[in-house]
Amino acid sequence: MTKRIAKTGLFVALAMIFSYIEALIPLNFGIPGVKLGIANIVVVAALYQLNIPEAAGISFLRILLMGILFGNIVSLAYSFSGGVLSFLGMVICKKLKLSVIGVSIVGGVLHNVGQLTAAAFILQSAAITYYFPVLLVSGLVTGFLIGIVSYRVNKSLDKLSQKHTDN
């Protein structure tokens, strides 16, 4: 039990570091909302290494803490709806036996969809749907890249825990 709590805490910390690194990279695609989403590596890994409630906890704690530390209520609402939609989608896809890459792609796409929907509500304007197709494709591409990394991370973690149980 303590081991799981420690692990979860480690994952949250890692996810926050990844979010922070992401914010440091001045990657401007000219479209609001397009980013790599490297923190999702941690969430995907948690989904495979831990169980669903723990992964959910990690994802939402990360969003909440990053929002409190660096954001405001608006940006929090924004990432929260992205996070919820993305997480639910990933859980469903995992159950549907998609591979890590497929799960990551769906996560990336739905994260963008969630953020876009929140933005449309906050702005009370449908103008933002103009970005919809772009964000779908960007979610697909970044989800794919993140998926490959997550696959490798999972493989290493699997080996690592194998060794642990062996010893």
């Binding site: 197709p133 772009v134 494709v137 697909l140 591409v141 794919f144």
Partner: peptide, 14 residues
């Protein structure tokens, strides 16, 4: 195939 698909889509939108 997947990469080509994406490139084609990007070109198309461009």
């Amino acid at each position: 195939i997947f990469s080509i698909l994406i490139i084609v889509l990007c070109l198309f939108s461009g």
